[in-house]
Amino acid sequence: MSLILMLAISIAVAAGVLLVLSRDVFRLIVGLAVLGSATNLIVFAAARPGGLIPAVIEAGATQLPAAAANPLPQALVLTAIVIGFALLCFALVLGAYLVRQGGQQNVDRLAAAEPAATDPVKPPVLEQ
């Protein structure tokens, strides 16, 4: 596996973590998306890609040449990309809803479900 790819993935992961730890709803979601892309690359890289030959059987041939890329991780990554995209769409809408409905961009101030305590030992009463 190429060192350059490993480095790129690692940097993307680090940047993704930074974004995920942000206080902003939107940044957090984007961070998860970046982490998702990086994870897809990890799965892809796990098969140690390197060649250029796609996993398509040439006309006339009956099977893949030995130098062709491993098709299985590609299929897995494709599935993962699609799933990740579906979740990202949901998350973007969820974030938009939170911001519009609650007017809160700060992920640390989402307190409707978990209001801050005022009593020294007892939790606040949730009104349903």
Binding site: V25, F90, A91, L94, G95, Y97, L98, Q101, G102, V107, L110, A111, A112, A113, E114
Partner: peptide, 11 residues
């Protein structure tokens, strides 16, 4: 709002 927040934290 609380449902959306819960979903967000869960997510």
């Amino acid at each position: 709002q609380r449902h959306a927040e819960a979903a967000f934290k869960y997510f």
